[in-house]
């Protein structure tokens, strides 16, 4: 069993039709990431039927390896709360994350810290997953790391996996090219030869 999200249980189960349409938008974001040479993960933050945040990976653009889709979208939720002069924690407590891939350990911790109660995701993330795949940050007992959250998984999982495979296996033609060493080998091959393939 996943940990129960406190307080907001009433709104937790969105109707299936809503889930479908929100997830469709998250997949659009993931495709956008793929076309921009970023890891194809897309997400939405939805509060009272309103999209407060939309994110896709921005690691390359920002040269910051923590700029995952979820972190990008959380920033927008915080900004929205600020503009509306609402307490960001109160807003987050009623915000659902829709994301194409299981959040990683870092993002799962960030979601906890901000009290996001529910995450709906597509496929598992075997390499970094923080909602049960590598660690279970979503429901472990971490009294100083915000609140545990609930997960609903499996929406269009196949499609999410396919996108990741496309990204990891065939070198993305739109991705910024890695610098090639004078020896003719790319630094990619030198630094991480034993990389696992994407989730399956």
């Amino acid at each position: 069993m996943r940990g129960q999200a406190g307080g907001a249980a009433g709104f937790l189960q969105p109707p299936d039709s809503d889930v479908q349409s929100w997830m469709a938008k998250a997949f659009d974001m993931a495709r956008d990431a793929l076309e921009n040479g970023e890891v194809p993960v897309g997400c939405l933050m939805v509060y009272n039927d309103e999209i407060l945040g939309k994110g896709r990976n921005e690691v390359n653009e920002s040269r910051n390896a923590t700029r995952h889709a979820e972190m990008v979208a959380l920033d927008q939720v915080l900004e929205w709360s600020r503009l509306k002069q609402l307490d960001p924690k109160e807003v987050c407590k009623l915000t659902v994350l829709y994301v194409t891939v299981e959040p990683c350990i870092m993002c799962a911790a960030a979601l906890r810290l901000l009290h996001i109660p529910l995450v709906v995701y597509g496929c598992k993330n075997d390499r970094f997953g923080g909602c049960g795949s590598v660690l279970d940050i979503s429901s472990d007992d971490l009294p100083h790391t915000g609140a545990s959250f609930k997960c609903i998984s499996g929406h269009r999982a196949e499609e999410a996996i396919e996108m990741l495979k496309t990204f990891y296996k065939q070198e993305n033609p739109n991705a910024p090219k890695p610098k090639v060493r004078k020896g003719g080998q790319s630094s990619r091959g030198l630094c991480c030869p034993a990389e696992k393939s994407s989730s399956s």
């Binding site: 390359n60 390896a65 990683c104 870092m106 810290l113 070198e171 991705a175 630094c191």
Partner: peptide
């Protein structure tokens, strides 16, 4: 280091921090 079009910006660097990082920071 760059792999799959991703930059790993702290390769070769060391971090000093006054207290043990939380889960988010560690990951």
């Amino acid at each position: 280091a760059m792999e799959n079009g991703q930059l790993y910006i702290c390769t070769g660097y060391e971090l000093y921090v006054t207290r043990e990082p939380c889960v988010m920071c560690a990951m």
